[in-house]
């Protein structure tokens, strides 16, 4: 049944129960809607940033003076890699009976996420202390910190969620609820990557190409 297998990657409940399948579909669909509402939030932050990075520089630094490509590039690689490792975790969840390989992939993902957050914080610290570019300096900087910071807060929430799920894996085992939560966390994590693609393009690459 290849259709059923693909219906949601990571979902292999090994249950024939139509009721359970329906419940899972409902949860995932609801989560997709949440993700889309979240995406609208990001879209508006992007639109605000796009306007303010041009009109709102005031007497602060312009994007081209502030951004370099090195850190964003490394951050991008880290985040992309974490998406891949989460994909491996999804496969382990679906096919491997061993709890350890699932936990290992999740841990790797978590570490990569933490590295990403740490790099972002160090970016912000550098901008604020060395470039005198705190969010209070100009509209452009306000919009920059809010946009990139909101993405960062999402990653942190994803990490917290991951931690809770690791505990649940240990305590409750691979029960249906935990599987479905891992599946939704996977969607969340991959969606953050999509947002990051827009951030490195419209914030950093646009800023550097002026």
């Amino acid at each position: 049944m290849s259709a059923a297998r693909y219906s949601y990657v990571g979902l292999n409940l090994r249950e024939q129960d139509a009721q359970a399948e329906h419940g899972a579909q409902t949860l995932i669909f609801g989560f997709w809607i949440f993700l889309m509402a979240d995406l609208v939030v990001f879209a508006l932050l992007f639109a605000t940033y796009a306007a303010m990075s041009v009109h709102g520089v005031a007497d602060g630094p312009a994007p081209a003076e502030l951004f370099s490509l090195k850190m964003p590039f490394i951050e991008t690689l880290v985040l992309l890699l974490s998406s891949f490792t989460f994909g491996m975790a999804s496969l382990a969840l679906k096919y491997s009976a061993k709890r350890s390989s699932l936990a290992a992939w999740l841990l790797v993902t978590g570490v990569l996420g933490a590295v990403f957050v740490a790099m972002e914080i160090s970016d912000f610290a550098t901008y604020i202390s060395e470039d005198q570019a705190p969010p209070q300096r100009s509209g452009f900087l306000s919009a920059y910190y809010l946009l990139v910071g909101t993405h960062g807060v999402h990653v942190v929430s994803g990490l917290a969620w991951l931690l809770v799920l690791l505990v649940q894996l240990a305590v409750l085992g691979r029960v249906r609820e935990v599987k479905l939560r891992l599946l939704r966390l996977a969607l969340f994590w991959h969606m953050l990557d999509v947002v990051w693609v827009c951030i490195f393009t419209f914030v950093y690459l646009f800023g550097a190409s002026a």
Binding site: G60, Q136, G139, S142, L146
Partner: peptide, 14 residues
């Protein structure tokens, strides 16, 4: 709360 400039009439707020 934090002195940002999204909608202020100064420092590039809109």
């Amino acid at each position: 709360y934090a002195g940002f400039h999204f909608f202020t009439a100064e420092a590039g707020g809109n």
